[in-house]
Design a binder for these strands. Sequence first.
DNA 1: TCTGGGGTCCTAGGACCC
DNA 2: TCTGGGGTCCTAGGACCC
Length: 433
Amino acid sequence: MFALLDGNNFFASCECVFRPRYKGLPLIILSNNDGCAIARSEAAKALGVKMGQPYFELLPLVHSHGLIALSANFSLYGDMSDRMMSIASAMGAESEIYSIDEIFCGLHGVRDVTRRAQAISERVLRGVGIPNCVGIGPTKTLAKLANHIAKSAERKPGSYPPHLGRVCNLAEISPEMFHYVLKQTPVGEIWGVGRKIAKRLAELNICTALDLSRMPLPMARKHFSVVLERTVLELQGIACMQLETQPPPKQQIACTRSFGHPVTTLPPLIQAVSEFATRAAEKLRKQEMRAGAINVFAHTSPFRSGARFYKSASVQLQPPSSDTKTLVNAAVRGISQIYEPGYQLSKAGVMLMDLCPGIEQQADLPFALPINARDASALMEAMDKINARFGKGAVHVASTGQAEKEKSEWRMKQERRTPQYTTSAGDIPIVRS
DNA sequence: TCTGGGGTCCTAGGACCC
DNA sequence: TCTGGGGTCCTAGGACCC
């Protein structure tokens, strides 16, 4: 038996903990560059704000209905998530943090499951301030469905019986009620069924969770894939997915961003990918891994007319590395290869691939360093610590050609008394204070 | 003017081999 | 020059998730 606890409107709820005056008001959280809505309060949903809707389309609501928009504060949400998870994981002996706002718990050996779930849900609300719902079922897919029912029954009167709100345990309802809730649930609400598959299923006259649970397995396999076949089995109560108590090692690490304004020249592009590579390298070292290749890409906006550009380059790293300087150099080389003038670039990013375990070894360092490899590795560790404490980019490796710009920016920032340090553009990264 | 970021898994198809 | 089945490996792209 599995339970899934999920924070309601998580990012919006986090903000309301610290700004209680926003409770009950239409509130949205905006993505990077305040591009679009990535979280919505109940009141914002009621105004018709869609997930991922661009902010400029929502400006009329800001004026007419007092819609409040906040820039995302991901470090806050990460902290709130940690606190929520530490309480919620007490629901069962084993747990799997599935996303920033969701946790699966294995309920093997737990007695009085529903009561316990109610108590934990209450504890999360009181202790962290995040309203939440719990779904319980014999498979992960059914626990997900139960969670959807728990949320909808509470928020949308008439969707499901009210007594299934907040905490919904599908294992203790009658077969008739189980049949009813499956029939009430559109197939697109099922975990693993997205827009495209829902549409194709509808063409086969499979429109509800009940229809899907009755789909012949060979048909699911033939017309779709093993993934959908598993979903059908899980809806029938046959568990195909186990709890992943240990997070599997990452296969890739990405850092990508949309630009606030279109980028048309190489220098800002180089600066951007240098920063992305630096962030990605930090994540890499946190995992104690090295990358065997780095992929760099840049593209124009898919939403705007004009000349299209969509290119990427892979740079092999032999030997694999987790050194910021090596990764930045490779990223710069890659972006310089693919760059072409004449395009309004809207987004770029780097992805670290072919990850392998291990921290940088002395023999792995491909460039000559007057300081020894252990020092270089210690330097990376020190950079990570400083950046963690003083904020991203407090210390970073400069790309070749950026040194003079760095210096003048640094002086300007010093004058404004903002703490800002940078490393030199030479072969030896030196922390300048 | 203005449209997120970070992942995973699966499949199809091509290249190549015997 | 054309004929065949079967296998592996790799990559690109599509679909999904939050």
